[in-house]
């Protein structure tokens, strides 16, 4: 602390403490007026403007946020709706596919069945006709052989008419049932 040099000061009464000083009052008034003028004209409007602008910006951003939220809600609802639809559609598609697969399967099975039956029928018919043809063949062979044998045995030629009759008689006694299909005897 620097040395404080006491200057001799005359003892004064304290009344000046509560005596208004006109010069100081004028100074106060003047400086206050200047302050008020400058603050009121250039400072307060600026601050007020900035605050209002911020207020405005805040309100706007709240509004904006609200709008965005609303939109998001709508979108979400829309997507949910779409999802529901898609799920329903998917189920429908699967159901349809399942049904069509079943139908297809059934059809295929039926067709196969029919085809097999047809094939078997055909086969049966083929066998039958083959059998019939074979029997005819055998008969003819047997008849020819019999004629030849008879000629050799009797040394005589029977006329065609007689031979046929004789053979038919003989063959009538023969049993071909073993060769022919069941109950299909000639």
């Amino acid at each position: 602390m620097p040395a404080v040099s006491h200057l001799p000061v005359a003892a004064s009464s304290g009344s000046f403490l509560i005596t208004p000083n006109v010069g100081l009052m004028i100074w106060t008034l003047l400086l206050f007026a200047i302050s008020m003028y400058i603050l009121g004209r250039w400072v307060f409007p600026r601050i007020s403007e900035a605050l209002d602008r911020r207020q405005h910006a805040i309100e706007e951003s709240i509004d904006h946020a609200e709008r965005v939220r609303h939109q998001a809600d709508e979108m979400l609802e829309e997507y949910r709706e779409r999802l529901r639809e898609a799920r329903a559609q998917a189920e429908q598609i699967i159901e349809r596919a399942r049904k069509s697969a079943e139908v297809r399967e059934r059809e295929t099975m039926e067709e196969t069945q029919k085809r097999r039956e047809q094939l078997m029928e055909q086969t049966r018919r083929d066998i039958e006709s083959e059998t019939r043809r074979a029997i005819q063949e055998i008969r003819r062979e047997v008849a020819d052989l019999t004629v030849m044998a008879t000629e050799k045995v009797t040394r005589k030629v029977l006329d065609e008419e007689d031979q046929r009759r004789l053979i038919e008689e003989a063959l009538g006694d023969l049993d071909f049932s073993a060769l022919a299909p069941d109950g299909d005897r000639d």
Partner: peptide, 17 residues
Amino acid sequence: TILTIGTMFWISRRMQA
């Protein structure tokens, strides 16, 4: 007075969002 005007004026020119 100088401080009142000065500080307030200075800040009022630098108001930011």
